[in-house]
Write a protein that binds this DNA or RNA. Sequence first.
RNA 1: GCAGAUGUGGCGGAACUGGUAGACGCACAGGACUUAAAAUCCUGCGGUGGUUAAACACCGUGCCGGUUCGAUUCCGGCCAUCUGCACCA
Length: 813
Amino acid sequence: MEYSKNIDKKWQQKWKDEKLYKYNPNAKGKKLYTLEMFSYPSGAKLHLGHWFNYGPSDTFARLKRMQGYNVFHPMGFDAFGLPAENYAIKTGIHPEDSTMKNIETMKKQLEEMGGSYDWDYSVETCMPNYYKWTQWIFTKLFEAGLAYKKEAPVNWCKNCQTVLANEQVINGACERCGTAVERKKLAQWFFKITDYAEELLKDLEKLDWPESTKKVQTNWIGKSEGSEVTFKGENGDFEFNVFTTRVDTIGGVTYVVVAPESELVQRITTKEQKEAVDNYIKETAKLNEIDRLSTERPKTGVFTGAYAINPVNGDKIPVWIADYVLEDYGTGAVMAVPAHDTRDYAFAKKYNLPIKRVIEAKDGEKTELPYTEKGILVNSGIYNNLTSEEAKKKITDDLAAKSEGKRSINYRLKDWLVSRQRYWGAPIPIIYCDKCGMVSVPEKDLPVLLPYDVEFRPDGESPLKKCEEFMNCTCPKCGGKARREADTLDTFVCSSWYELRYPDAQNTEKAFDKETVNKMLPVDVYIGGKEHAAMHLIYARFMTKALRDLGYLDFDEPFKRLVHQGMILGPDGNKMSKSKGNTVSPETYIEQYGSDVFRMYLMFGFDYRQGGPWDEKGIESMVRYFSRIERLIETIGKYDEKESNGIIKENEKDLLRVKNQTIKAMGEDIDNFQFNTAIARSMELLNKINDYIRENNDINTKVVIETVKTYIKLLAPLAPHFAEEQWYRLGNTESIHKQQWPEINQKEMDGGTKNIPIQVNGKLKTCVTVSADATPEEILTAIKETPQVIEIFEKNDVKKEIYVPGRIYNLVV
RNA sequence: GCAGAUGUGGCGGAACUGGUAGACGCACAGGACUUAAAAUCCUGCGGUGGUUAAACACCGUGCCGGUUCGAUUCCGGCCAUCUGCACCA
């Protein structure tokens, strides 16, 4: 193989000099915005996963460019975040320094990969020219009431004296020191994503996304339809609501349970029970994440001493508290029906609470308790004999008439907690003034710059709090002395709108121009890992909708089509990780074989959506393939096109037919991200060309040369450097990447033959070869004339004859 | 526990809306070229039986069953692996 990384370098330089990948928004061709999830510059270099994600996606972008689309294919860096900060804590290297250095390296490597990016449209989320607008968006959400502050529990590591992100909590313990993580309440910032729960759910329909990802989001949003029912205290001195999806079982309520954290508990607890209740609340607060995550843990709870009245049947029922009831879901209180709920059943058994059956199976079959299916009501007074569905409706209606209940919908989705007690993030642009309260930083004062010299080692407080010159400021409203918010924004906020910034990345006046984003978005194809199915992809959708409602854009969804690439695992079949020592570095392969061999091997050896364990065995096969192509080009060089007589014979038609079929198949395959089969098709074409040359002494040079040129064009998106080299070797003087994707010549593609399978009882017996353009009737005639078919009719009693016109013939005997 | 994905030759992986299972490649075997090797080219390659060789027959897409003229594909039930979410009332 003559091809090597030197050839890569040569063309990279030339493409750069010629600004080959310059994006022109006004160029002709339909716009196509294709985007890969940008990468996090945590490691110093691109790893195999980056290659597997970005190489094939670049191939897709290149195909689309050749097919005449005006392709917008930007790349940037998700540069804020915890790993850089952790790295800094470990090594003492400032996050800004390490991050900027990593970005430089990664950019260079992406060029070495042959990525067709225009770096004039790039974003780095840690740069003030980007995070200024992240902050600006925050202020707009704040002004619209979509960003708010409230107390919320955070993960707290006692040993490290720090707040932990969810990702830093491994099995309920701190990832660094292994100490059990506790919950601690702190004032936190939230985005009101719950306002959009219904729309986020409903609009999933519109999206061309993998069904499994839509399902993840559906579950994440967790819509649940049921009823809210009011329970009053036996003396009418208190009341509270419960949420239930099974109001039909309300007759079987034998106690109610309130979350220990609920403020109601303090009001209703009797003197006798006060000590027990207080102790229980204390114990619950101490509970760490490990215990909380355990569903195995036996249910515990305490009686408050108070009684409530069942609004449907007037039963007097005890009010308990138990930590299996969550304060922040539903109303923070549940009605317990031990006969028909497994948790309530276990709880009732443990504390000897009564169990009352109110639902029987529809078929009258005797079932054991707890019976959690729907059925027919019993022991429920006027509701007896109704089905569960009928009862739900009637009971809710009756309660509503008394103002003691209503239909209700609950979502599992919680508001998005966006504040972090961390250094390496965008400062939250809020100022606290004694006189004016919370004031957002006006646009003219943005960005609120992240100071460089900060002690970022964790000690339990936001690092920025210790930076006096950052903290002290004047109130934008009254001009008095004020303090800044010391928390920074979750990196998911930075990445929730970056796709909007790319098309207008240099804009210094606005986050983005409305007209520009309306024209360029939504992203036509978005490519990235499915680990982002819930978080990033739902946050970005929320942000688009919120900005739409604030009038900054006019579309509903950011990403029209979504493709998830698979993951390349270590050779041992496990996820690659430094600690397991099973990482594979792309560099050695690039050094040895050149970037296109590596890119092609990644595309050919794995299903793009699936990934799989790394295995370098097959990479030599790609070297062999490249060598065969080089030899072909060399052979072709000996022929002179002018010698051709121009008459196309039968054996040449076959070659042309395969050529056209390959154009079609490869275009479709790459469009579907099936790179492995696209490459297989290209190999078949090469085999065909070689067969033709070998089998014919007197070859038609014109046909061969044209076919080879087409073939190299087909390789251009897959192996950009290599194809360029061969293209020039064929005597061309303009980049192959400026060529059109070959057109399909229908005339050349027609003709030839095809096989029609003949089956007996669904089993293949023989085939009949017919002309590809034969009519179904002609084919049937040919089938009937086949000796084997005649024989079958003679020897068997044919009961049924099935002919799928032009496809298959089956006889039942 | 719930949800989702996956399961096809020795291996990576193909197979359109139910219609010739195993494309393409790797590995392997045999042959050509060579003093020899490498490279290259050609041929074979799911299993079992069968034959001098073929023809041919049977089995075969995780397992069991169903629908159908026909199932890797659709339905029901299992098993295994992986990935999310996890007391959601």
